[in-house]
C-alpha cells in the first residue's frame, strides 16, 4: 500500500509526467490516483514522507502533491527535504485543516499552490498542467 507501481498510462509514452502523491489518508490516495490517471498522468502514491523520499532518491517525479498533517514527517518538512534534493521540483500542498500561518509557510518555502480539502479538482488539474504540462 505504500508505493503503487506506475500504472500503465493511457497515452503510453515515455514523456508522460509522473505525479507523486503523499497522503496518510487511504481515501485521498485512491481518489487522486484515479483522477490523475484519468487525465493521463502517471501516478505514484505514498502513505508517508519517508517512503516517498526513498523512491524519489532513485527516480525524480515531475511533481509532488503532499498532505500537511501526517504522522512522523509532515508535508512542510517533506517539502524542505525535497527542496534540498530537487530545487526545481513543483510541490502542491493539500490539507484538511488549513491554517493561514501554515499556508504562508508553505508558500514561503516555495510551494506552487496550497489547496484546502475538499479542493476543486478542476483547479488542481489546472495547477498540475501549469507545472508539468497536461498529460496525453
Amino acid at each position: 500500500m505504500d508505493a503503487t507501481p506506475p500504472s500503465p498510462p493511457a497515452p503510453a509514452r515515455e514523456a508522460t509526467p509522473v505525479i507523486a502523491v503523499v497522503d496518510d489518508d487511504q481515501g485521498i490516495r485512491t481518489a487522486l490516483h484515479s483522477l490523475l490517471r484519468s487525465v493521463g498522468y502517471r501516478v505514484r502514491v505514498f502513505a508517508d514522507a519517508p517512503s516517498f523520499l526513498a523512491e524519489a532518491a532513485r527516480e525524480r517525479p515531475d511533481c509532488l502533491v503532499t498532505d500537511i498533517q501526517m504522522p512522523g514527517m509532515g508535508g512542510l518538512e517533506l517539502q524542505r527535504a525535497v527542496r534540498a534534493r530537487y530545487p526545481g521540483l513543483p510541490v502542491i500542498i493539500i490539507t484538511a485543516f488549513p491554517e493561514e500561518a501554515i499556508r504562508e509557510q508553505a508558500l514561503a518555502d516555495g510551494a506552487l499552490h496550497f489547496f484546502a480539502k475538499p479542493f476543486e479538482t478542476a483547479a488542481m488539474l489546472r495547477c498540475l498542467a501549469d507545472a508539468v504540462g497536461s498529460a496525453g
Partner: peptide, 17 residues
C-alpha cells in the same frame, strides 16, 4: 475538520475521476 474534510475531498475527487 480533519476527519470530515478528508473523506469529503475523496468523494469529490472520486466523482470527478
Amino acid at each position: 475538520a480533519h476527519e470530515v474534510n478528508n473523506p469529503l475531498a475523496a468523494v469529490v475527487t472520486n466523482a470527478e475521476a
